[in-house]
Design a binder for these strands. Sequence first.
DNA 1: AAGTGGTCTAGACCACTGG
DNA 2: CAGTGGTCTAGACCACTTA
Lengths: 240, 240
Amino acid sequence: MAIKTSPAPLPPYARVKQYLKRELARGRWTPGTLMPSEAELVQRFSVSRMTVNRALRELQSEGLVDRVQGSGTYAAQLHGVSSRLTIRDLHEEIGARGHEHRAVVHLKQAERATAELAHQLGMAEGAKVFHTRIVHLDNGVPLQCEDRYVNPACAPGYLGVDFEQTTPTNYLRTVAPTWEAHYAIEASPPTAEEARLLGIRRDEACLVIVRRTESRGVGITLARLVHPGSRYLIEGHFKP
Amino acid sequence: MAIKTSPAPLPPYARVKQYLKRELARGRWTPGTLMPSEAELVQRFSVSRMTVNRALRELQSEGLVDRVQGSGTYAAQLHGVSSRLTIRDLHEEIGARGHEHRAVVHLKQAERATAELAHQLGMAEGAKVFHTRIVHLDNGVPLQCEDRYVNPACAPGYLGVDFEQTTPTNYLRTVAPTWEAHYAIEASPPTAEEARLLGIRRDEACLVIVRRTESRGVGITLARLVHPGSRYLIEGHFKP
DNA sequence: AAGTGGTCTAGACCACTGG
DNA sequence: CAGTGGTCTAGACCACTTA
C-alpha cells in the first residue's frame, strides 16, 4: 500500500483558482484583458462547469477579476493595496497582547444633542443623548480616550452599565447585534481635556478614529477614539 | 401577459442568505450558537443542497458564520468592525476627486543600505538601494511626502523613470505585478525636512503610512508616506 | 445567433464530529 | 453510528453581450 505523503491534494476548484492566480501574478493577463471563458477552463482542467464557476466567483469576490455576463471574465485593475482592516474592541486587543486592561470613567451623563450631533445620529436637535468619556489603560498606560454619544432609543440602559467591567463597544454589541459603520482615521492634536486625561503634551500627534454606527438607518452611536501617536498604531497585511 | 413589476426577484441562494442575515441581525442565534443545518434549510426553502451550501459558504467568507465539518454551522463572534481598507495610488485618488495631481521630485539617487533598511528589504548591509523623495500636490497643495527605497534587483530601471509623469506605485506595479504588503498607520510629527517640503509646522500632526511590499519573500520597496493631518484622512465603511 | 456568465438541481462520495 | 459539512458532476434554463 502506498504511503500518503501529500498532506492535502488541493480540490479541483482550488487548483483552478491557484492556476489563475499564479498566471495573473505573472502578468499573463494584464488588467482589463479578457481571460479564459468557463468553457475553456472546463476543458483544460477536465472538471464540470460548476467547479470552474466556483473558482471564478471566488476570485471575483477577492477582487482579482471582473466578470460581465454575456461578455466574459477580465483581469481586474489593481486599485491599490486593499486589505481587511479590523478595528477591534480595545479590551480584546489589549488582552490579546497579554496585558492588563483597565478603564477609568471620567464622565457618564445624559445631555441635550447639539444640532451637529443630532444630525449625525438622526435625532431631533435638543433630544436626549447619553455621553460617556472613558480612558482605557494598557498595563496602567493611557492608550485611548473614548468620547462616545449614544442614542437612548437604541440602548435605554446605557448609563446603568459599569464600564469598568465591560466596554461600551461590547455592551452595544449585545443591544444592537449587527450594524453598519462609517469611520474615518486621521491625525490631529488632542483637545486640552484629552491631553490631560491621556497624560500627554498638547502638541503630541494623536491617531484619531471617528466612528458612527447605525442600524437600519437609525444612528446608534458616535465615537471619537483618541490615541497618543507615540503609543498606538494600526497594522495590517495584504496578500493577493 | 402579466406585467413584471418586481425589479429583481432575488435568486434562491440570495433569499437564503438574506433570511439568515436578517435573523442573525435580530439576534436569533447569539454568537457561538448552532444554526440550522444545510438539510433543514433545504427543506424550509425547498431548494437543492448546493444552493443552501452556496449561501452558507458566502456568509462564512463574509465572516458571519463559522462552519465546522462534521459538526455544524455556528453564528460567528463579531470580532469588531472589519472592513476593506484600500490604500490607493495617490494619483488615482486625487484624480477621482476631479483635482489636478502634480509631483515634485526632490531626491532621486542610489545609496548604500543601512543595517535597518537592509534588514527590511532582505538585502545585505551596504548593498545598493534606490532612494526617491517626492512631494505630491493636490491642486497645488502638498498632500503627501513620499520617501521610498527600492530594491534594484526588482526594478533596475527605477531611477530612469520620470516621476512627474507617473507615480512610483504605478511604475512598480508594472515591474512586479502582484505582491504582498505589510503596512502600519500611525500619527507622528514630521521630520524637519518633511515639514519644510510639505509647508507645515514641525508640530503639526501627520498621518504616516509605512508600507513594505515583497514578492515571493524578496523585499521590493519600503515607503514612508507622510500626510499633513489637517489635509488628509482615511475613510471607510463597514456593512455586515 | 453564438458565446458568455448566472443560477439551479438531484444525486453522489467523502471526511469529519459526536454520542 | 447518524449527522454534518466539503465537494463534484452532468445537464439544464435563463439573461445578457456582441456581432
